[in-house]
Design a protein around this nucleic acid. Structure first.
Lengths: 236, 236
DNA sequence: ATTTGCAAAATTGTCGACAATTAGTTTGGT
DNA sequence: ACCAAACTAATTGTCGACAATTTTGCAAAT
């Protein structure tokens, strides 16, 4: 089974959710990513505070952190709205992902120790097995893919990079994937790409790992853009 | 005179500081960058709230945003401290800067319109004049350099990129520069590098602009690392 | 003298109420 | 009938106080 790092500590990298606003953050991140709080909808502080049985203080703290990961947008004295998904937003997001995750790969090739690389290989083997069992079902693959990316990012050992990708950008990435229902024939191809990236990291070839990761993400973007066009046409 | 974009809207890109926490944020960003709140020192909420004549609510909101731009670090139930500067932190920060500002250059070469490029040239001319007048005085050059970088980042037209660089990372960059007293013979060389970058952007050569910017930042990092080593030796 | 445990003090997290600002509605005028 | 201005209602920003947690200081035991 995939470890699904995203669900174990998410934005609270390394520490447990001790405070009310911690729990609120997790819950609201999930609700937004999964569309329970619809994209573009207004966030009413009194309403949500009642719903979650907390006062507005921890709620506002959680909202400040939601703004940090680009899941909501706030306007002073006017309120907050859940972000809207768009083709432009996706492109802007993935431009940065390509760059930063490419860097992460290069650094991971330098900084991951043998044990971590071995764990990464084991993770991929697990995914391969579970994927064969659940042919066509996309959730595990997607979670596994994110898990894979998470580990490489952590392997870079660059705290700013880790923070920016895992804490700030990845929730949006997940939101695009979940709400646009990423799936299709890319699933099996992604495995091969992951394998190639691990090999490059294991042989300490940062330049190659960088290149492969950029291509991997570019391919993923192409796949989602296709979906976005389809959705766009439905609304015409 | 340089426009010093950083002082006009900073983290509040585009809007005015309307609320108490907005003003607090600006004030504390300045205080931390300039070392008035010393690196590594603990932040006492009651004390600062008294000092600024506000309640803890807007102060905590400002602190949440300070954490976002990596100027303070918070531990739940334990408090917040101003970040410490270190050689490792600088390296990690500049690794990301190289990557993201390289991307910004590539996008700026695609997306800046002729008018914006013309303004950028005019800015550089201004810096050249003011530098000759104030030979050796580093502040204007440094502010000018940041201003130059700001404009290119904005020229990328990528909102996430703009947010990450201008809102999150640049305060730390400024903190390193201010507290380590960036100056020296690099000042005049930086001009030539800026000029070359503009030319690449003007001729719509994104790839070259990317490369030149990476080198420019790498050179800048080398300069600061030198300073850091000197400071380190003083403490031994 | 050092360490362990407890108690007191200080700090952070949370709450409910009030003030300031904005959005919506009604009313009056053209 | 339409637009504008004032008024009302709702929402956001801020405040002071309380609860929960952590740190500090002291005392006792090894």
């Amino acid at each position: 089974m995939s470890t699904i790092i995203g669900e174990t500590f998410q934005s609270l990298l390394g520490r447990l959710p001790v405070t009310s606003s911690d729990r609120l953050l997790l819950e609201m991140q999930r609700a937004i990513v999964e569309g329970e709080l619809p994209a573009g909808s207004k966030i009413s502080e009194p309403e949500l505070a009642r719903k979650f049985n907390v006062s507005r203080a921890p709620l506002r703290e959680a909202m400040a952190r939601l703004e940090r990961c680009h899941l909501i947008e706030r306007i002073p004295n006017a309120g907050a709205r859940v972000v809207k998904l768009s083709a432009e937003g996706l492109q802007a997001l993935y431009q940065i992902r390509e760059e930063l995750e490419g860097l992460a790969c290069r650094l991971a090739a330098e900084n991951m120790d043998e044990h971590e690389i071995e764990q990464l290989r084991a993770l991929l083997d697990q995914h391969l097995k579970s994927q064969r069992v659940r042919e066509g079902e996309s959730y595990y693959q997607e979670a596994g893919d994110l898990d894979f990316h998470y580990r490489i990012i952590l392997g870079s050992k660059n705290p700013y990079l880790i923070n920016m990708l895992c804490d700030e950008l990845y929730f949006l990435v997940r939101m695009y994937r979940v709400q646009l229902g990423m799936n299709g024939p890319r699933v099996s191809r992604a495995f091969d790409e992951h394998k190639a990236i691990i090999n490059a990291i294991a042989s300490r070839d940062g330049e190659l790992a960088d290149l492969l990761m950029r291509r991997h993400i570019a391919a993923s973007r192409g796949n989602i853009e296709l979906k976005l066009q389809q959705v766009g046409k439905q609304h015409d």
